[in-house]
Amino acid sequence: MFGWRKKGGEAAYQGENVKSLLNLVSLFTGALYGELDERLDFRTALSRALRKPVPAHVNFWFCFGGITFLIFLIQVVTGVGLLLYYRPTVEQAYHSVVHITNNIPFGWLVRGFHHWGANLIMITVMIHALRVFLYGAYKPPRDFNWVVGVLLMFGLLVFGFSGYLLPWNELSYWATVVGAEIPGAIPVIGDALAYFIKGGDTVGQLALTRFFAFHVVIMPVGMAVLLLMHFLMIRRLGISGPL
């Protein structure tokens, strides 16, 4: 390590030019190999973070939290991709989604990932929660992480509900009209809540705009904070015991 200190002298410096050009590559691979790792010792940091022994009783069902997170990351990446072409107005939303699906190269793939990821993530998060429940892993000291997990699950539901309106087709429009009636049934605050969700008395441009804001900005930021708490607590408290 720190061998670069020893290389002195003008001639050696000249010879290093080509090499340092090559080292530009190690800006990308360098976290694991080569110069960057030599200077910053990422490898040790990474192995401290990743090489954590997993208890023997951990099985396939323990994977679903991670699978859920993986799908969430896919949603983030493909969602940002959709943002390049999606237009959140009543006139253009539907056409822009059709355009993404039919005309943009690989648009069908990006949208398909986002669409099916949104469905799959609901299944994986349910399995994850069921596993935590059946293993009793929600008990103290992990009780607060269960609470965060429930918030995360509600967050995913809000994600799905808000995203569903964005294509602005018949299905998504009526799903939102019906869906906004459900909180409307809550006593006392129901009407105000439905009014807030729809951004008015009916589902129109204001509803689309605020669903869009929730879907692509507010929820992602909120979820990131909750996910961080979730993972920090897992690290601190460790995996729960066997059945």
Partner: peptide, 17 residues
């Protein structure tokens, strides 16, 4: 390749094709 093709703008990018 996929990402490049997807994000590269095309002249007819704003019409329905």
């Amino acid at each position: 390749y996929v990402v490049g093709r997807y994000i590269w703008p095309r002249p007819e990018g704003s019409t329905t094709g």
